[in-house]
Amino acid sequence: MKPCPSSETWPRLLEGDLPEREAQTVREHVQTCTVCAAQLEETRALLGALAKPLAEPDAQRVRKVMKRVRETERQPQWSRRWVPLAVAATAALASVAVWWRPGAPGTFTARGGNTQWRQRVSVEVRSALNAGQKWAARASLMAETPLVVWYRNIEKTRPLYLAAFLVDGAGEVHWVAPAWPADEPPPLLAELPVSDSDALMPWSFIPANPAAGDGELVTWVVDEALNVEAVEQAEAARRVGTQVSLPGVVWRQPVRIEPAP
């Protein structure tokens, strides 16, 4: 029987750091030597214990860090030479404020929609690759761009449901939300979570080979748990000139879909 390997061997074996020939020799040795087998198991247990996290995800901890970040943002970062300019700018803004009075503080204004909805909910599909900027008036969208959904929903008295999809250059629908496995039937629209602040849906979606050309990113929020087919039919009806009323609010963003490179 070959001599027992040194203790340094065990972590290197578990980490795949030994040449394959040497690793094979060590593995064969372990099968015949109970002492070395025990040492290998102890090392494995040690590394496993190190891998156990001490802390679990904690929403309160995240809120605390976001509060600190906001405080950091509020701290003045300007050098002294900008202070006179800042004072002048503040004075100018104050004079403008005398005659221009914005809406009530805290009012949440969403894009589009009717009055009943616009202050309760807003949803946007954005590209994950352009730093989350709002789309330009007629933005370009590369075919393989991952899309993410930002939303805010302060409607707490009834559930709202979300439909978000890309209509490509050929008029085909690519669903962003809800998303479902291709081999399963289309689901009902998913409920839009309540969120007092802007939130990000926990997934991104890459449309599968969308046809190049003029398309639209469509976001629909309704107060019925419709089947996605109902939304598709309403969308199809609109394309042939028939307006179908859905119980909700819709936003449309024209995009020019560029072919994949």
Binding site: P146, E172, A182, D183, E184, W203, F205, E232
Partner: peptide
Amino acid sequence: VVSGGGSLVQAP
């Protein structure tokens, strides 16, 4: 519907 997208759905 050209994609419901099981394999395409991913977290950012």
